[in-house]
Design a protein around this nucleic acid. Structure first.
Lengths: 324, 324
DNA sequence: CTGTTAGCGCATTCAT
DNA sequence: ATGAATGCGCTAACAG
């Protein structure tokens, strides 16, 4: 800025002003400064700016996996919204489980983000302490709790399982099975389905619980596993649409009619759920909406507009298609 | 650090040393400092550190879309590798097209990243100038060119199309069609397929070129479009496995035999390509490998180990399955 | 092994 | 509308 200023015949402060609030500088000098910037190829140093102003315009975001469309579409919506307000996103993957998350949170906080986006509501005590100590807005997204660190945006996972169980019972399927991916929230949905199914009179539920992430291959293996357990037909509750699609493929490969012999309920309402044949009956949750809602609540806090609600439940809805 | 130092009975510098290189501090004071840190909940300010040392330990990464598994898996592999060396990733979406990319590059450079990860080889002149001016390692990934800004890691997109055409001709399919997504590289693959197919004696190629991203729905619409154009059967080259899967679904919905009436070639060898039925014949490119290779080359430059090769061609391979 | 002295490049007072 | 002075919290020499 010093150099640019000299070239424009003004001081460093004036250059700073021209950049942060052009209206505070006379049009004539503004023009000279802009020319000097163009000539020198000057790029302001945001590190120094952040240090001086203690506003980094940086938002930290931590998700379990960026290759998982559920999280990446949340982050996408979130960052588009935040970018509109001038913020950039420092994104990291935590994997599933709070161990490494703690180190990551520390690393992120050292960059003095203006706010933080976290996935889920389970964080180590130390992590909570650090977050509280940072005194910045913290969003916990994709799940809800009564005691968020700051605020949470999500829905009740167990409730989706119960709703699916009730739906399936109403349809009169003779048996039920679940196929579930390894993450904690997926398990909670599946467990809730099974428990509710049995509670309202269903026969004991066959289970295929994977440790790995959801994939088509696991969906196929899941149905094979259920059949091997003596599951002879009925409804299969899957912790994600991807698994549901895999079950569909395996059912067809085995010559089983869907939904006549095997009915399938997915989760997520990904775009392909409506496109495959038969269409997948599923639980719709609007991933992008979580990202947007988190961003809006965060921006409100960043702009000091009171604290707003601390629990934002966006709910879900069962979408009936042909698979169940 | 001042506060921590007072608590530990040492000066601020000693605290700095204890953090950056514990071996430069006596075990006794180190212990005292660590205790003081624990008591105060001190989190070092990486902004100040970066400003003072001109090493931000930050890597900028720009991808067209984070919800696209192709890019997100590249970034995933890249960031895992870079994180191992202590770097964090500042990630942004550029969308497709170099317009907004320029602004994003400027925004990223203002944070003084130690290096930059770019997708593709097409960047505005102004962007190139800024990047060159920043004097940092720049990786251009997922495509290759003879004149990278710094270095590139990718493969020849047109060549994949030509290889697919040759494969398809050898198989003797009577006609060919292409279904292509909107991005420039997808187009290049599709165009190369069509041109080569016709060059080596194939009949004129029917085309369905979408402006949008690939999706199952577009794959289905693509096959419908080809059939409407008078395509009566033969091979369909798709710019991605997702489109290929959509074509497969539509073919089945229309009662067309695969590969008897409709043969399908995809691109990418995503995990589902081997799982669906019939398995998708496709062009395998190892997304994670691009990320890793980019990271390794970047780390070498960051550690000043000469400049290394500036064009890293990781190639591709055709994977034959049942669909073609 | 530890402390002192200078900046890093800006934003933020307070002047003028 | 502009400038001078000060400090954000740290690292990098240089002493001792």
């Amino acid at each position: 800025m010093e150099t640019v200023g000299r070239l424009a015949g003004v001081s460093q402060v004036t250059v700073s002003r021209a950049l942060s609030d052009p209206s505070k500088v006379s049009p004539a000098t503004l023009a000279k400064i802009q020319e000097a910037i163009a000539q020198t190829g000057f790029v302001p140093n945001a590190l120094a700016g952040a240090l001086a102003s203690s506003k980094s315009m940086l938002i930290s975001a931590l998700v379990p996996s960026i290759t998982n469309i559920v999280y990446s579409s949340m982050v996408k919506a979130f960052s588009e919204e935040m970018r509109g307000a001038g913020y950039q996103i420092l994104l990291s993957e935590t994997g599933f489980g709070p161990e490494d998350e703690e180190k990551l949170i520390a690393a992120h906080l050292s960059r003095r983000p203006d706010a933080m986006f976290l996935t889920g509501i389970h964080h180590s005590a130390q992590a909570r302490r650090m977050l509280l100590g940072a005194e910045i807005p913290v969003a916990e997204v994709w799940d809800i709790t009564d005691s968020p660190i700051d605020f949470c945006v999500g829905f009740n996972h167990a409730e989706t399982g119960r709703a699916a169980a009730e739906y399936a019972r109403r349809k009169g399927y003779p048996q039920a099975g679940v196929v579930s991916a390894g993450d904690e929230r997926a398990r909670r949905r599946s467990e809730a389905f099974a428990r509710e199914w049995e509670r309202i009179g269903g026969a004991p539920v066959a289970k295929m619980l994977f440790d790995a992430q959801a994939s088509l291959a696991n969906g196929r293996a899941g149905l094979r596993g259920l059949l091997a357990q003596g599951f002879t037909g009925g409804v299969v509750h899957c912790s994600s649409d991807l698994l549901a699609h895999g079950v569909l493929i395996e059912a067809r490969a085995q010559g089983l009619d869907v939904p006549g012999q095997i009915a399938v309920i997915g989760f997520g309402d990904q775009d392909f759920a409506a496109t495959v044949e038969p269409g997948i009956t599923t639980v719709r949750v609007d991933m992008a909406a979580f990202g947007r809602a988190a961003a809006q609540a965060m921006l409100a806090r960043l702009q000091g507009a009171g604290d707003g609600p601390s629990v934002i439940d966006l709910g879900f809805e069962i979408v009936e298609r042909q698979s169940a």
